[in-house]
Computed example of a mutant assay.
Amino acid sequence: MWRSLASNMLTILIVGLFLFAGVILWGKNEYTAEGPLDTAICFQVPSGSTMSRVSRRLEDDGAVSSGAVFRIGVKYSDKADALKAGSYLVPPGASMDTIVDQITRGGASTCGTEIVYRVGVTRVLAEVRELDPATNAFVERAEFTPGVDETPAIYQQKKAEADTRFRIALAEGVTSWQVVEALKAMDVLDGDPGRRPPEGSLAPDSYEVRPGTDRATVLAEMQARQDKRIADAWEARSSDAAVTTPEEMLILASIIEKETGVAEERGVVASVFTNRLKRGMRLQTDPTVIYGVTKGEGVLGRGLRQSELRGVTPWNTYVIEGLPPTPIANPGLQSLIAAVNPDTTDYVFFVADGTGGHAFAETLEEHNRNVAKWREIEAGNN
């Protein structure tokens, strides 16, 4: 009797162990298998959330098949206390394992509302936009000029929400004065920006900020990035470069930046100025004249006068020899690289060609023909 009972108990135990192992295997497969989502969703994790609350919301949203399996998987992956607040784009079919990695890894949010402050050469814009999970594209909700236009209600609403992201997008070719004035107009920032940074010392790039970030801190980050770019570009300089110091490279890069908005032209434009410097020719570039007039404080907004082209300023390369004493804008990385790695050409002239680019020439005769064509285009547009 006892032997039979023991045999039955052993059988039950073995069956139970197999069942338990089967449940564990099923749970593990369920945790890593493709999830039930048919379309992407933007899942928000508010500050102060718990994994238990998050698992229930994911189950309600149809992102996970079992909140219990999700919680067990989180526990056994040692990520129960690693939850990060933010907004996360959960793609179709995302596994529980993938979702856990998203909401515990941290870093920038991947969806939701973003407020972008675009500091451009001619204007500053604040954009309120939201990522559409279905298309993975941003939809613009509002656009205005900070400090000038009336502030839209949606901006104030989204600015107050905890999961809204803020970003400053600095365009290539802006001046340091323009950057400082733009930062002053951004009400998401705090503090005095301090003394205007030297021209050319700020890196055109994208900068994530948080409400209350100090303006001087933002400028310091912009300077740190530019310092690294200058060092890297100088380290990779070509023997064909006409400039002899990183400071000269920065000045030439700023002129290249202001002369062309066509990325493919930077190396060719750089070759023109390199050839002129090596031959002892004056650079004769309009953007330097403009900087001598404005000192980088705003946009000229009109054509140059003959008196300004002839006027003596430290930056007027029609009357001075070589490079001006300072940069005339904040150049991007590609212009820095072009300044010390110019294309190999014999060009010493260029003029606009009516397409947004330039026509280049080796001789004055050829250049004069290009100028005549450009004047015909100008006359036809008036």
Results as ranks from 00 to 15, higher is better:
Pro314Lys: 08
Lys159Gln: 13
Arg3Trp: 14
Glu321Thr: 13
Asn136Val: 13
Gly212Lys: 03
Tyr76Arg: 08
Thr260His: 08
Asn370Gln: 01
Val69Ser: 02
Phe349Cys: 02
Leu250Tyr: 07
Asn275Pro: 07
Met249Asn: 11
Val179Met: 11
Ile320Arg: 01
Cys111Pro: 02
Thr274His: 03
Pro92Val: 07
Leu5Arg: 13
Ala253Met: 12
Thr244Ser: 14
Trp234Lys: 04
Leu304Asn: 02
Gly191Phe: 10
Val69Asp: 06
Cys111Val: 12
Trp374Phe: 15
Trp26Pro: 05
Glu130Gln: 14
Gln102Trp: 00
Gly267Leu: 06
Asn136Phe: 07
Ser77Arg: 11
Ser238Trp: 05
Ala352Glu: 09
Pro46Trp: 04
Leu13Trp: 14
Arg3Asn: 09
Asn368Glu: 13
Val174His: 00
Leu333Ala: 08
Lys28Glu: 07
Ala203Asn: 10
Thr326Phe: 00
Thr355Leu: 07
Glu297Tyr: 12
Arg282Leu: 02
Gly16Ile: 01
Leu323His: 14
Leu131Tyr: 04
Val180Glu: 09
Ala203Trp: 04
Thr217Glu: 01
Thr135Arg: 04
Met9Phe: 15
Arg369Val: 12
Glu30Asp: 14
Thr32Pro: 01
His367Gln: 11
Leu131Gln: 00
Ala160Lys: 07
Ala270Trp: 06
Arg215Thr: 07
Val139Met: 06
Arg57Thr: 09
Ser206Pro: 00
Glu321Arg: 09
Asp286Asn: 04
Val319His: 04
Val371Trp: 08
Val371Ile: 13
Val90Met: 04
Ala126Gly: 08
Leu131Met: 09
Thr355Gln: 10
Glu30Arg: 11
Lys28Asn: 01
Ala236Ile: 10
Ala63Leu: 06
Ser271Phe: 06
Gly48Phe: 05
Tyr76Lys: 08
Val124Glu: 02
Asp132Glu: 14
Val180Arg: 09
Gly322Lys: 00
Lys295Phe: 06
Arg71Met: 12
Ala80Val: 12
Arg118Ser: 13
Asn330Thr: 12
Gln306Glu: 14
Glu378Ala: 13
Asp149Pro: 04
Arg71Ser: 06
Ala85Arg: 07
Trp2Glu: 02
Ala169Arg: 10
Ser55Ile: 03
Leu83Trp: 05
Thr113Asp: 15
Gln284Asp: 11
Thr98Trp: 02
